[in-house]
Design a protein around this nucleic acid. Structure first.
Length: 454
RNA sequence: GGCAGGGUAGCCAAGUGGUAAGGCAGAAGUCUGCAAAACUUCCAUUCGCGGGUUCGAUUCCCGCCCCUGCCUCCA
């Protein structure tokens, strides 16, 4: 059974064969750290976390690199508004990023390079582009990349340079030879953070950082490059142009792009202002709910965000945790169901994988209901949950971490059970209703009464 | 306008040239004092619309309608 991945470059599912047997180099475009992450960012992190986990499960030694863009116009503007330096802002936002993404159960990448730590690499790449004639100094002093000189320009995004120019929304900059040319090195204005370069004090353009950092960590040619759909053009197109021109070919072999998170069928984005930050959402929902919500849709499809959708994700998790509650763990080992592996190997089909998990859940419950040993199925259940990064908390935490007084609940339960013993069901039901009003649900089992959050 | 991706039950969402996974919600039953949870059964003769290819299409082809995205920063 081999892994197939949808490759944006070829527009089809390709069998995944790494450059070096047993090893995978994967670069994912991270975030620009000037504000808190929203749910759209969370999707990229969760999607590639699952991909990362599955690649490791397949036995690959994965070198997973995800960058931080820690210098750009938005950062400079925000830092100025707050009256702090850009480092203070980006340091703060990186800490927040880690809090949010860790909460979502994402394993940290092997490396998380910050753009500002790679100035030399970027400058050296730009110098190579100048040497080969692909780059030039424009009218305003900025160093620009001449897209016309790169024959393959537009291949990744399926665009044709002339079509782009025809419907161009790009501001025509007098300093550019071609409106599509993009900035490699931007001259600093007064009071802006700047670094020395052969072309004067300035800062890198957005695209060059990813080309430089990916090649530094993974080599000129590596396996996987990922990110959100919106990065296909121009960001990834430009990355390819820069890296291939500078290194004489190569660069990423498989390009993976995840779909957007939408709100009312419209893309969630900063510019539209229709976004929710991860921390806003996780105030109301457990982070695992957000993760479950994302796994329920294939990573390349759009995902519509709503409270209803999160409620559904929570209900699904509740069902899985109910099973975990019945059989908290087993030391037994079991292979993954073939159907699960097949789903994951088919371009990381998590909805299909979840279906297998739910089927396993039913099988376990059935066996337990019949008084049979369910350890084998439970072992498979645990492995699947672990690979998907869900159902990772203690059952008691999941069901009982309420903002209520546990001893008060226990008192009510004791009183109710006394009433039940006296066959005073009116009183018993009243006590149960009282707890229900506080969001507590009771369950009378053969071994006593337990409670959980609604 | 150019390019790309979609339209599957009340909702979410997989999928296949051979007759529609899974989840949520809903209905009935088992269990229970009653519930809850679990289990069982039921819940799309049908996959945007119209043609075509085929023994057979939701799945392939053509046309149409609708939605979204990219073409500027964007995960």
């Amino acid at each position: 059974m081999s892994l197939s991945v949808y490759n944006t470059l070829t527009r089809k599912k390709d069998v995944f064969v790494p450059l070096v047997a047993g090893k995978v180099g994967m670069y994912v475009c991270g975030v620009t750290v000037y504000d808190y992450c929203h749910v759209g960012h969370a999707r990229v992190m969760v999607v590639f976390d699952v991909i990362h986990r599955w690649l490791r499960e397949l036995g690959f030694d994965v070198n997973y690199v995800r960058n931080f863009t820690d210098v750009d116009d938005k950062i400079i503007k925000r830092a100025a508004e707050r009256g702090i330096g850009i480092d203070a802002l980006t340091d703060e936002m990186i800490v927040a990023f880690h809090e949010d993404i860790d909460a979502l159960g994402c394993i940290r990448p092997s490396h998380e390079p910050r753009a500002t730590a790679y100035m030399d690499a970027m400058i050296s790449m730009i110098q190579k582009l100048m040497d080969t004639g692909c780059a030039y100094v424009g009218g305003g002093g900025d160093v620009l990349y001449a897209v016309r000189d790169f024959a393959d320009y537009g291949r990744l995004s399926g665009k044709n340079i002339d079509d782009l120019e025809a419907g161009s929304r790009v501001d025509v900059d007098e300093g550019k030879r071609d409106p599509l040319d993009f900035v490699l090195w931007k001259m600093a204005k007064v009071d802006e953070p700047a670094w020395d370069s052969p072309w004067g004090k300035g800062r890198p353009g957005w695209h060059i950082e990813c080309s430089a950092m990916s090649c530094c960590h993974l080599g000129d040619t590596f396996d996987i490059h990922g990110g959100g759909m919106d990065l296909k053009f121009p960001h990834h197109e430009n990355e390819i142009a820069q890296a291939r021109a500078a290194n004489g070919g190569g660069f990423a072999r498989y390009w993976l792009h995840n779909g957007f998170v939408n709100i009312n069928a419209e893309k969630m984005s900063k510019s539209l202002g229709n976004f929710f930050t991860i921390r806003e959402v996780t105030k109301k929902y457990d982070p695992e709910v957000l993760r479950m919500f994302m796994l329920g849709t294939h990573y390349r499809s759009p995902l519509d965000f709503s409270d209803t959708a999160l409620d559904v994700a929570k209900a699904g998790l509740d069902r899985l945790y109910e099973t975990k509650r019945r059989l908290p763990n087993t030391q037994k080992h079991s292979p993954l169901p073939d159907t699960f592996s097949a789903a994951m190997n088919d371009d990381f089909n998590t909805p299909e994988a979840l279906a297998v998990l739910f089927e396993t859940t039913r099988a376990i419950n059935k066996q337990l209901d019949a008084g049979q040993n369910a350890d084998t199925a439970m072992a498979a259940f645990q492995r699947m949950c672990s690979l998907l990064g869900i159902v990772q908390q203690d059952v008691s935490v999941w069901f009982q971490s309420a903002d209520v007084d546990a001893s008060w609940i226990e008192e009510k339960i004791a009183a109710r059970n006394q009433a039940r013993k006296n066959r005073d069901f009116a009183l018993a039901d009243a006590l149960r209703d009282e707890l229900a009003a506080s969001g507590i649900v009771l369950e009378d089992g053969s071994s006593g009464t337990t409670w959980k959050k609604a």
